[in-house]
């Protein structure tokens, strides 16, 4: 188990009707590693995250996490096992305050919890909530509703909600979408701080500068296939990648 990566994806395929959105994709994420997954629009990046987090069934292939085959686990079970994800479109619970959003994610329901809660209501508060808010720099904003947060802050809030159960691996779907340059830089700093805390990251974005600036390893998807893998410097120079992106990778 010591040499095995945290997450191992081998020959993963996802099909919608006759279309192969993800086609024989293989990669791994190691302990405390930051891995990037980039590719042009429609390359299958989000579908890949959907498949890893249990939101779409995989047609073929195997996903192992901490040595266990999780290919057929439902979404909530994967989250409880330590793989959490964020969404491209934030998706905070709008009827709940930020704190309540985190409470929902921090505690697991037991079969007796409705009975216990009906008799004596708990607040469900834990130190993890404070820690997660601090990790994204939103301390003191817990009583606000998601609609009261600035767009950039609500992305960070979604990140906090993913972090609150102290996962082993976090799958981020375009966390920088809609952020300005300054906010993106702040985000990059926060992401770099995660691996030392024991959280590995799989980062998906088409802002290539964020991915190249933070990740140790980068995989490039195009039409559902991995067309290039390696350290940022190598991937950046790969002619296949340049072709897929029509040269945009050379821009900063």
């Amino acid at each position: 188990m010591s040499n095995e990566p945290l997450l191992d994806v081998s020959l993963l395929s996802v099909t919608f009707g006759g279309v192969r959105a993800v086609d024989d994709v293989s990669f791994a994420v190691g302990e405390s590693e930051l891995v990037g997954l980039i590719g042009p629009n429609g390359a299958g990046k989000t579908t890949c995250i959907d498949a890893l987090s249990g939101f779409v069934p995989n047609a073929a292939g195997r996903v192992t996490f901490e040595g266990r085959d999780i290919s057929n686990w439902p979404a909530h079970r994967r989250a409880r096992a330590g793989i959490v994800r964020t969404f491209q479109s934030v998706e905070l619970f709008e009827d709940l305050t930020l704190n309540e959003n985190l409470v929902v994610a921090a505690t697991d329901a037991k079969w007796w919890s409705p009975l216990a809660d009906a008799v004596w209501p708990r607040r469900g508060w834990s130190d993890d909530i404070e820690w997660a808010l601090e990790a994204v720099g939103l301390q003191g904003k817990g009583e606000l509703f998601p609609t009261e947060l600035a767009p950039g802050s609500s992305r960070l809030a979604a990140l906090a909600r993913a972090l609150v159960r102290r996962p082993r691996l976090i799958l981020l779907d375009e966390p920088a979408a809609g952020l300005n340059t300054y906010e993106t830089e702040m985000l990059a700093d926060r992401l770099r701080a995660l691996p030392p805390l024991g959280v590995s990251v799989l980062l998906i974005d088409h802002d290539t500068s964020l991915v190249f600036g933070t990740c140790g390893t980068v995989h490039v998807l195009d039409f559902g296939r991995v067309i290039s893998s390696g350290p940022p410097a190598v991937v950046r120079a790969d002619p296949a990648v340049i072709e897929a992106y029509l040269g945009t990778v050379t821009e900063p």
Partner: peptide, 29 residues
């Protein structure tokens, strides 16, 4: 019911109401 609404159980219910996908991503069955 008032107790349930104020406790994590009620919050999870509201979470399911608001967004089933996000709720599943939070480890809610």
């Amino acid at each position: 019911i008032a107790n349930l609404r104020r406790s994590p159980t009620g919050l999870r219910w509201l979470a399911v109401r608001a967004n089933e996908r996000a709720a599943a991503a939070c480890g809610i069955n």
